[in-house]
């Protein structure tokens, strides 16, 4: 292995940060879509678990990747549908409903996943996610000084990923374009900023919100599926381990932008692994700031700082969807 040069250590670290960031990124994209419509869905953790369990159990039962993906989306959408019906149609409190969804989702997922605890990802699906479609063969220039290591570095950082990673990045770009360049995105943003305005403009507020919540749910399901199917290769109880809450934090941290979500997820993903990577450095052992548990706090602390800074700014600037968390009822008087 040539992984011992400092450059390669960095490259491998960055690459694994990217891999760790995947469930966070996809979940964040989903929650961003939902929150852009004005709905704060705190049930991300529950939806990720539902999607993960449904998708993984389907994968080991049917041996089919396509069915597994559909099941992951379907499972999470089922959870999101509860949330949508309650908060959009029945105008229930969004925070409480989101918490209920987390409880419900964890319950369903851990019940369903019970049978899959000792199972592992079917081999051909494993192989599919081991496939690195963009990895070039550099054996010809690998030994060239300077150029060779530089090329290998870039390849490790950018091109040695499975298809899930590239699809996620593509998704972020597509969502960003959709949000800012299309009619659909404009409508979604208007609904999230000011539903009364949307209503008066002839935009279907409820339908748009349903759509955003369900799409958000589907993405959370795919994010949840990554953990058992790709990352762990097996199911364990509460496999998301709080990542759903990191997603809620991330959406704020990246200020509801799909493009910034990539950077934010990468940072939080890096923080997730940096903790135990640093265990290898005995000179840092006594320093609590570099303890993996303290590093585990950083995403939340950073989010708190962003939240406070965001609200403390005097004027101008956008502070998130204007109607976030508020129900809308046209005939209210």
């Amino acid at each position: 292995m040539t992984d011992t040069t400092p450059l390669m250590v960095l490259a491998v670290f960055l690459a694994s940060a990217v891999r760790y960031s995947m469930p966070l990124l996809v979940g964040t994209l989903g929650e961003t879509v939902t929150e852009r419509s004005g709905h704060l869905n705190l049930g991300v953790e529950g939806m990720m678990l539902m999607g993960g369990a449904a998708g993984f159990v389907t994968a080991i039962r049917t041996d089919s990747l396509v069915l597994s993906l559909l099941a992951a989306m379907g499972g999470a959408i089922a959870g999101a549908l509860f949330y949508a019906v309650l908060t959009v149609t029945f105008r229930a409190n969004q925070v409480v409903t989101g918490l209920a969804l987390t409880l419900f989702g964890a319950g369903v997922a851990n019940t369903v996943g019970k049978g899959a605890v000792h199972a592992s990802t079917p081999p051909h699906i494993q192989a599919f996610f081991a496939w690195q479609p963009l990895r070039p063969d550099l054996s010809a220039i690998e030994s060239v000084p300077v150029l060779g290591p530089a090329a290998v570095f870039l390849r490790t950082v950018l091109l040695e990923y499975n298809i899930y990673v590239y699809m996620a990045v593509l998704l972020a770009v597509v969502l960003s374009l959709l949000l800012h360049r299309t009619r659909l995105g404009l409508h979604l943003r208007v609904v999230g900023e000011n539903p009364a305005s949307a209503d008066a403009s002839g935009i279907r507020v409820a339908a748009t919100r349903y759509g955003a919540i369900l799409v958000g749910g589907a993405l959370c399901g795919l994010a949840g599926l990554y953990l058992p199917l790709v990352h762990n290769g097996t199911w364990v109880e509460n496999i998301t381990g709080g990542r759903g809450w990191i997603v809620v934090a991330l959406v704020i941290f990246v200020r509801w932008s799909p493009l910034r979500a990539m950077l934010g997820a990468l940072l939080f993903g890096a923080l997730e692994i940096i903790g135990f990577k640093l265990q290898g450095f005995p000179q840092l052992a006594g320093n609590p700031l570099f303890s993996q548990y303290i590093i585990g706090m950083y995403p939340y602390i950073i989010t708190v700082i962003v939240l406070v800074a965001n609200s403390a700014r005097k004027k101008g600037g956008w502070r998130g969807p204007g109607a976030l968390g508020l129900p809308y009822f046209r005939e209210e008087r």
């Binding site: 299309t182 404009l186 208007v190 900023e193 000011n194 403009s201 002839g202």
Partner: peptide, 21 residues
Amino acid sequence: KLVESMTAMENIVAGTGRGLR
């Protein structure tokens, strides 16, 4: 009933027309 953070054009166009573009 206007979205304060958007431009006049975005406010005017929202809710009109069909399709994605």
